[in-house]
Write a protein that binds this DNA or RNA. Structure first.
Lengths: 202, 202
DNA sequence: CATTCTAGATTGAACGCTCATTCTATGTTA
DNA sequence: TAACATAGAATGAGCGTTCAATCTAGAATG
């Protein structure tokens, strides 16, 4: 009974295959516009077989959302470890701006947020991930501010996180609303705005 | 043949009735999750009758999008006429923050942007409206900056508009990702960030 | 004034299709 | 052989859309 036929790696690979195909379909047709049949074709398997790996379509949506937000969590964790070196932090802002201006990234993420505004299951995943991100960012920020001699109360710190988050997330809307955006100039101004926010008097 | 049975006001009212019902349905189920049958029930008429006023479902979506963006256009126009009085402009920021933090407003608008990322017809409406908004805001900004002795080139001005827009639109994401957001403190910090951006050296 | 006429408003059933999901049968592998 | 992987047909519900039939209210007519 040693191996006992678990074959987890294969199953996990199959799940990933489905999720990756689903992400593509969701990107181009939205959560409700994409059908199981479409996803199954993109994943190279039959429609029925999908149900061996996911209970239903909503479970696929939830998995996509969770997977995407996990990525965000690792990003904020990376940022925390890099927050002491000013150049590392500036680089974080740079790649953050670039990522959020990427139409593919923006499209799927906005779909997720829109879905969270009406689907309680997705909402819970999004809320929980956001709490974790905010806490991580808050710690990073407090550290940084104390190092530069500022002393902020919790509410102010939390609000700084909110404004910062709004700026980055707003870029996703901009990427879609204005496809001809001048990334270089925006980047320059954006970095200055972030710096001003982080260095403003308490 | 004087009256000639045009009855335009009635038809227009009926169209509005459908659009308002559709907005509700789209808000709570998304563009593709809401069905014509749902919309017709919410509008108090039969499903078939909807097709006397709209060619198909996509035309309803397009009308909702156009209607919403028209509202945005009048807002930027109002802002232009108010930009000289500092207090009027600050008030614009205040209501702008409040509006974008409103979950109802945020939900429908994010659905629109997400749809624009994949539906060319909606994308065109959104792009055109955004061009108009940016131009209006750009004029307002140039006016304001010149009055305070700054001289900016077009690219910088356009980038300022982008960062400003990103900040406001990002609030919609924040409203949904963090339902317990501390509006008052965010408002204070947000206003300061906007002021810093508008007064920064060229 | 009473009537017919008429054209738009409105309904609700019907159509063809696609959806998400289930089920059964077969293939594969160890 | 036993257990899992997979396909593909079947199911019933719901979709967007069409359409023929009815209603309604004002204009025209006598």
């Amino acid at each position: 009974m040693s191996a006992e036929h678990v074959d987890q790696p294969r199953a996990e690979a199959r799940r990933e295959q489905i999720l990756s195909a689903a992400a593509d379909c969701f990107r181009s047709h939205g959560f409700h516009g994409a059908s199981i049949s479409q996803i199954s074709k993109a994943a190279g398997m039959s429609a029925g077989h999908i149900y061996h790996y996911f209970e239903n379509k909503e479970a696929i949506i939830a998995a996509i959302v969770a997977r995407d937000l996990e990525h965000l969590l690792t990003l904020t964790a990376e940022m925390r470890s890099a927050c002491n070196l000013k150049e590392a932090m500036l680089e974080c802002v740079t790649t953050g701006v670039e990522d959020n201006l990427e139409p593919h990234y923006a499209g799927l993420n906005l779909e997720i947020v829109a879905e969270a505004s009406r689907n309680p299951r997705v909402a819970k995943i999004v809320h929980d991930a956001d709490v974790a991100c905010r806490e991580s960012l808050c710690l990073t920020l407090r550290h940084m501010r104390q190092a530069t001699g500022h002393k902020d109360d919790d509410a102010t710190l939390a609000a700084m996180v909110e404004v910062l988050a709004a700026m980055f997330e707003g870029l996703m809307c901009r990427a879609i609303r204005n496809p001809e955006i001048d990334k270089a100039t925006v980047m320059r101004l954006f970095q200055r705005a972030v710096r001003d926010l982080l260095e403003q008097p308490s």
